[in-house]
Protein backbone atom coordinates (compact mmCIF):
# COMPACT_ATOMS: atom_id res chain seq x y z
CA UNK A 1 0.00 0.00 0.00
CA UNK A 2 1.29 3.48 -0.75
CA UNK A 3 2.82 5.33 2.17
CA UNK A 4 0.07 7.86 2.58
CA UNK A 5 -3.36 7.76 1.06
CA UNK A 6 -4.04 10.63 -1.29
CA UNK A 7 -0.51 11.95 -1.77
CA UNK A 8 -0.04 10.10 -5.02
CA UNK A 9 -3.42 11.34 -6.23
CA UNK A 10 -2.50 14.90 -5.37
CA UNK A 11 0.86 14.69 -7.16
CA UNK A 12 -0.72 13.41 -10.36
CA UNK A 13 -3.61 15.86 -10.18
CA UNK A 14 -1.06 18.65 -10.08
CA UNK A 15 0.93 17.09 -12.92
CA UNK A 16 -2.15 16.87 -15.15
CA UNK A 17 -3.73 20.23 -14.33
CA UNK A 18 -0.98 22.48 -12.95
CA UNK A 19 -3.24 23.17 -9.96
CA UNK A 20 -3.18 21.94 -6.39
CA UNK A 21 -5.97 23.75 -4.61
CA UNK A 22 -9.73 23.24 -4.52
CA UNK A 23 -12.16 25.38 -6.47
CA UNK A 24 -13.61 28.40 -4.67
CA UNK A 25 -16.15 27.35 -2.04
CA UNK A 26 -15.10 23.69 -2.05
CA UNK A 27 -13.64 21.84 0.94
CA UNK A 28 -9.90 21.14 0.94
CA UNK A 29 -10.55 17.46 0.32
CA UNK A 30 -11.78 17.71 -3.27
CA UNK A 31 -9.61 18.99 -6.08
CA UNK A 32 -11.31 19.88 -9.36
CA UNK A 33 -9.76 21.46 -12.43
CA UNK A 34 -10.21 21.58 -16.19
CA UNK A 35 -7.08 20.93 -18.21
CA UNK A 36 -6.01 20.14 -21.76
CA UNK A 37 -5.89 16.48 -22.61
CA UNK A 38 -5.13 15.91 -26.30
CA UNK A 39 -7.85 17.64 -28.32
CA UNK A 40 -10.10 17.87 -25.30
CA UNK A 41 -10.37 19.91 -22.17
CA UNK A 42 -11.04 17.35 -19.48
CA UNK A 43 -12.39 17.81 -15.96
CA UNK A 44 -10.14 16.15 -13.37
CA UNK A 45 -11.48 15.27 -9.93
CA UNK A 46 -9.51 13.96 -6.97
CA UNK A 47 -10.30 13.31 -3.30
CA UNK A 48 -7.33 14.09 -1.04
CA UNK A 49 -6.64 14.11 2.71
CA UNK A 50 -7.69 17.29 4.47
CA UNK A 51 -6.24 17.81 7.97
CA UNK A 52 -8.70 20.67 8.48
CA UNK A 53 -11.79 18.63 7.65
CA UNK A 54 -14.98 19.81 9.39
CA UNK A 55 -15.91 16.16 9.87
CA UNK A 56 -13.36 14.40 12.10
CA UNK A 57 -13.79 11.01 10.41
CA UNK A 58 -13.23 12.36 6.90
CA UNK A 59 -9.78 13.92 7.02
CA UNK A 60 -7.50 11.14 5.83
CA UNK A 61 -8.63 10.67 2.27
CA UNK A 62 -12.05 9.18 2.99
CA UNK A 63 -15.11 10.06 0.93
CA UNK A 64 -17.56 11.66 3.34
CA UNK A 65 -20.53 14.02 3.11
CA UNK A 66 -18.73 17.11 1.85
CA UNK A 67 -16.60 15.11 -0.58
CA UNK A 68 -19.67 13.43 -2.06
CA UNK A 69 -21.70 16.61 -2.47
CA UNK A 70 -18.71 18.47 -3.89
CA UNK A 71 -18.02 15.76 -6.46
CA UNK A 72 -21.72 15.72 -7.40
CA UNK A 73 -21.78 19.51 -7.73
CA UNK A 74 -18.65 19.74 -9.88
CA UNK A 75 -19.71 16.90 -12.17
CA UNK A 76 -23.21 18.32 -12.59
CA UNK A 77 -21.65 21.71 -13.34
CA UNK A 78 -19.73 20.15 -16.26
CA UNK A 79 -22.86 18.36 -17.50
CA UNK A 80 -24.80 21.63 -17.41
CA UNK A 81 -22.05 23.67 -19.13
CA UNK A 82 -21.70 21.09 -21.91
CA UNK A 83 -25.37 20.32 -22.41
CA UNK A 84 -25.48 21.86 -25.90
CA UNK A 85 -21.88 21.20 -26.90
CA UNK A 86 -19.10 18.68 -26.91
CA UNK A 87 -19.17 16.54 -23.79
CA UNK A 88 -15.90 16.98 -21.95
CA UNK A 89 -14.16 13.92 -20.54
CA UNK A 90 -14.39 13.49 -16.78
CA UNK A 91 -11.37 11.92 -15.12
CA UNK A 92 -11.67 10.54 -11.59
CA UNK A 93 -8.22 10.22 -10.04
CA UNK A 94 -8.78 7.47 -7.50
CA UNK A 95 -6.65 7.24 -4.38
CA UNK A 96 -9.32 6.90 -1.69
CA UNK A 97 -9.08 5.11 1.61
CA UNK A 98 -12.79 4.31 1.86
CA UNK A 99 -16.04 5.99 2.75
CA UNK A 100 -15.99 7.96 6.02
CA UNK A 101 -16.80 5.83 9.05
CA UNK A 102 -18.37 8.34 11.42
CA UNK A 103 -21.52 8.77 13.46
CA UNK A 104 -22.06 12.32 12.19
CA UNK A 105 -22.01 10.94 8.66
CA UNK A 106 -24.57 8.23 9.41
CA UNK A 107 -26.85 10.65 11.21
CA UNK A 108 -26.79 13.04 8.25
CA UNK A 109 -27.51 10.21 5.75
CA UNK A 110 -24.16 9.58 4.07
CA UNK A 111 -25.90 6.87 2.03
CA UNK A 112 -27.72 9.65 0.20
CA UNK A 113 -24.63 11.85 -0.12
CA UNK A 114 -22.65 9.05 -1.76
CA UNK A 115 -25.66 8.35 -3.99
CA UNK A 116 -25.57 11.94 -5.29
CA UNK A 117 -21.94 11.55 -6.39
CA UNK A 118 -22.48 8.13 -7.98
CA UNK A 119 -25.60 9.52 -9.67
CA UNK A 120 -23.60 12.47 -11.05
CA UNK A 121 -20.87 10.24 -12.49
CA UNK A 122 -23.42 7.88 -14.03
CA UNK A 123 -25.52 10.77 -15.35
CA UNK A 124 -22.43 12.19 -17.05
CA UNK A 125 -21.69 8.82 -18.59
CA UNK A 126 -25.28 8.35 -19.81
CA UNK A 127 -25.29 11.84 -21.34
CA UNK A 128 -22.21 11.03 -23.42
CA UNK A 129 -19.34 12.33 -21.32
CA UNK A 130 -16.49 9.84 -21.42
CA UNK A 131 -15.91 9.06 -17.74
CA UNK A 132 -12.54 7.50 -16.92
CA UNK A 133 -11.40 6.28 -13.53
CA UNK A 134 -7.64 6.27 -13.05
CA UNK A 135 -6.83 4.16 -10.00
CA UNK A 136 -3.36 4.93 -8.67
CA UNK A 137 -3.67 4.06 -4.97
CA UNK A 138 -6.47 2.71 -2.82
CA UNK A 139 -9.96 2.23 -4.19
CA UNK A 140 -11.78 0.68 -1.29
CA UNK A 141 -15.44 -0.14 -0.80
CA UNK A 142 -17.89 2.77 -0.66
CA UNK A 143 -15.06 5.15 -1.51
CA UNK A 144 -14.73 3.57 -4.96
CA UNK A 145 -18.50 3.12 -5.44
CA UNK A 146 -18.84 6.87 -4.90
CA UNK A 147 -15.77 8.05 -6.78
CA UNK A 148 -14.84 6.07 -9.89
CA UNK A 149 -16.83 2.86 -10.19
CA UNK A 150 -19.48 4.43 -12.47
CA UNK A 151 -16.85 5.17 -15.13
CA UNK A 152 -17.07 3.89 -18.72
CA UNK A 153 -13.45 2.79 -18.50
CA UNK A 154 -11.23 1.98 -15.52
CA UNK A 155 -7.45 2.27 -15.76
CA UNK A 156 -5.14 1.26 -12.93
CA UNK A 157 -1.44 1.57 -12.24
CA UNK A 158 0.36 -1.77 -12.21
CA UNK A 159 1.89 -1.24 -8.81
CA UNK A 160 1.87 -2.81 -5.36
CA UNK A 161 0.47 0.44 -3.97
CA UNK A 162 -2.75 -0.05 -5.91
CA UNK A 163 -5.47 -1.87 -3.98
CA UNK A 164 -9.01 -2.26 -5.23
CA UNK A 165 -11.19 -4.07 -2.73
CA UNK A 166 -14.50 -4.35 -0.91
CA UNK A 167 -12.89 -4.00 2.50
CA UNK A 168 -9.41 -3.18 3.74
CA UNK A 169 -7.35 -6.21 4.61
CA UNK A 170 -7.22 -5.93 8.41
CA UNK A 171 -11.00 -5.59 8.74
CA UNK A 172 -11.66 -8.40 6.26
CA UNK A 173 -9.32 -10.69 8.19
CA UNK A 174 -11.06 -9.82 11.46
CA UNK A 175 -14.55 -10.40 10.13
CA UNK A 176 -13.82 -13.62 8.23
CA UNK A 177 -11.73 -14.96 11.18
CA UNK A 178 -8.64 -15.37 9.02
CA UNK A 179 -5.11 -14.05 9.41
CA UNK A 180 -3.80 -11.54 6.91
CA UNK A 181 -1.41 -14.24 5.63
CA UNK A 182 -4.29 -16.68 5.13
CA UNK A 183 -6.22 -14.00 3.33
CA UNK A 184 -3.31 -13.41 0.95
CA UNK A 185 -2.96 -17.10 0.25
CA UNK A 186 -6.69 -17.50 -0.35
CA UNK A 187 -6.62 -14.52 -2.69
CA UNK A 188 -4.24 -16.27 -5.04
CA UNK A 189 -6.64 -19.23 -5.27
CA UNK A 190 -9.86 -17.20 -5.39
CA UNK A 191 -9.30 -14.12 -7.53
CA UNK A 192 -12.20 -11.94 -6.28
CA UNK A 193 -10.79 -12.15 -2.74
CA UNK A 194 -7.33 -11.00 -3.72
CA UNK A 195 -5.73 -7.69 -2.76
CA UNK A 196 -3.28 -8.01 -5.65
CA UNK A 197 -4.08 -5.77 -8.62
CA UNK A 198 -2.98 -8.53 -11.01
CA UNK A 199 -5.69 -10.80 -9.64
CA UNK A 200 -8.21 -7.94 -9.84
CA UNK A 201 -7.22 -7.49 -13.48
CA UNK A 202 -8.30 -11.09 -14.17
CA UNK A 203 -11.93 -10.21 -13.36
CA UNK A 204 -12.30 -8.30 -16.61
CA UNK A 205 -13.40 -5.03 -15.01
CA UNK A 206 -10.31 -3.03 -15.96
CA UNK A 207 -9.82 -1.44 -19.34
CA UNK A 208 -6.06 -1.53 -18.91
CA UNK A 209 -3.29 -1.95 -16.38
CA UNK A 210 -0.57 0.70 -16.81
CA UNK A 211 3.02 0.13 -15.89
CA UNK A 212 4.38 3.48 -14.72
CA UNK A 213 7.94 4.09 -13.52
CA UNK A 214 8.12 5.54 -10.01
CA UNK A 215 4.38 6.21 -9.61
CA UNK A 216 4.90 8.37 -6.50
CA UNK A 217 6.79 10.99 -8.52
CA UNK A 218 5.21 11.78 -11.88
CA UNK A 219 7.82 12.91 -14.44
CA UNK A 220 7.43 14.55 -17.83
CA UNK A 221 7.78 11.16 -19.47
CA UNK A 222 5.33 9.29 -17.28
CA UNK A 223 2.80 12.12 -17.38
CA UNK A 224 2.91 12.08 -21.17
CA UNK A 225 2.59 8.29 -21.12
CA UNK A 226 -0.47 8.31 -18.83
CA UNK A 227 -2.04 11.19 -20.75
CA UNK A 228 -1.79 9.13 -23.92
CA UNK A 229 -3.48 6.21 -22.19
CA UNK A 230 -6.25 8.50 -20.98
CA UNK A 231 -6.75 9.86 -24.49
CA UNK A 232 -6.99 6.31 -25.86
CA UNK A 233 -9.47 5.33 -23.16
CA UNK A 234 -11.57 8.42 -23.90
CA UNK A 235 -11.66 7.54 -27.61
CA UNK A 236 -12.61 3.98 -26.73
CA UNK A 237 -15.37 5.19 -24.40
CA UNK A 238 -16.73 7.56 -27.06
CA UNK A 239 -16.83 4.71 -29.56
CA UNK A 240 -18.55 2.35 -27.14
CA UNK A 241 -21.89 2.23 -25.35
CA UNK A 242 -22.86 4.53 -22.49
CA UNK A 243 -23.63 1.71 -20.08
CA UNK A 244 -21.27 -0.66 -18.26
CA UNK A 245 -21.77 -3.60 -20.64
CA UNK A 246 -18.05 -3.65 -21.56
CA UNK A 247 -17.40 -5.06 -18.09
CA UNK A 248 -19.48 -8.12 -18.98
CA UNK A 249 -18.16 -8.74 -22.48
CA UNK A 250 -14.44 -8.59 -21.69
CA UNK A 251 -12.41 -11.81 -22.01
CA UNK A 252 -11.75 -11.70 -18.25
CA UNK A 253 -15.46 -11.53 -17.46
CA UNK A 254 -16.22 -14.40 -19.82
CA UNK A 255 -13.71 -16.49 -17.90
CA UNK A 256 -14.26 -15.33 -14.30
CA UNK A 257 -17.95 -14.45 -14.27
CA UNK A 258 -19.42 -17.52 -15.94
CA UNK A 259 -22.10 -17.99 -13.27
CA UNK A 260 -23.22 -14.37 -13.44
CA UNK A 261 -23.31 -14.42 -17.22
CA UNK A 262 -25.29 -17.66 -17.16
CA UNK A 263 -27.81 -16.06 -14.80
CA UNK A 264 -28.07 -13.07 -17.09
CA UNK A 265 -28.58 -15.18 -20.21
CA UNK A 266 -31.25 -17.29 -18.48
CA UNK A 267 -33.01 -14.14 -17.27
CA UNK A 268 -33.13 -12.75 -20.82
CA UNK A 269 -34.51 -15.99 -22.18
CA UNK A 270 -37.21 -16.37 -19.50
CA UNK A 271 -38.13 -12.67 -19.52
CA UNK A 272 -39.24 -12.90 -23.14
CA UNK A 273 -41.39 -15.95 -22.41
CA UNK A 274 -43.03 -14.49 -19.30
Amino acid sequence: MSEQVGLRGKAWFQAFTGKNSPMVGDPGSVLTADAKLGEDTARFLCVVPNPEARFPCAGRGEVGLEESYTLATRIREAIEQDKNGKKRPIIAIVDVKSQAYGRREETAAIFLATATAADAYASARMKGHPVIALVMGNAISGGFLTHGYQANRILAFDDAGVVIHAMHKEAAARITLRTVAELDELGHKIAPLSYDIHDYAKLGLLHKLLHVEDPDRPSQTTVAQVQKELIDAIADARAGSQDLSNRLTSPGAREMRKAGLAARARMEEQWRQA
Partner: peptide, 17 residues
Amino acid sequence: RLQEANLGLAVIAEVMA
Protein backbone atom coordinates in the same frame (compact mmCIF):
# COMPACT_ATOMS: atom_id res chain seq x y z
CA ARG B 1 -20.75 -10.63 0.20
CA LEU B 2 -17.24 -10.78 1.62
CA GLN B 3 -16.63 -14.29 0.27
CA GLU B 4 -17.00 -12.81 -3.24
CA ALA B 5 -15.42 -9.51 -2.26
CA ASN B 6 -14.40 -7.76 -5.46
CA LEU B 7 -17.14 -9.32 -7.58
CA GLY B 8 -19.64 -8.29 -4.90
CA LEU B 9 -18.41 -4.70 -5.05
CA ALA B 10 -18.45 -4.79 -8.85
CA VAL B 11 -22.04 -6.05 -9.05
CA ILE B 12 -23.19 -3.34 -6.66
CA ALA B 13 -21.67 -0.73 -8.99
CA GLU B 14 -23.53 -2.42 -11.85
CA VAL B 15 -26.81 -2.55 -9.91
CA MET B 16 -26.43 1.19 -9.25
CA ALA B 17 -25.88 1.86 -12.95
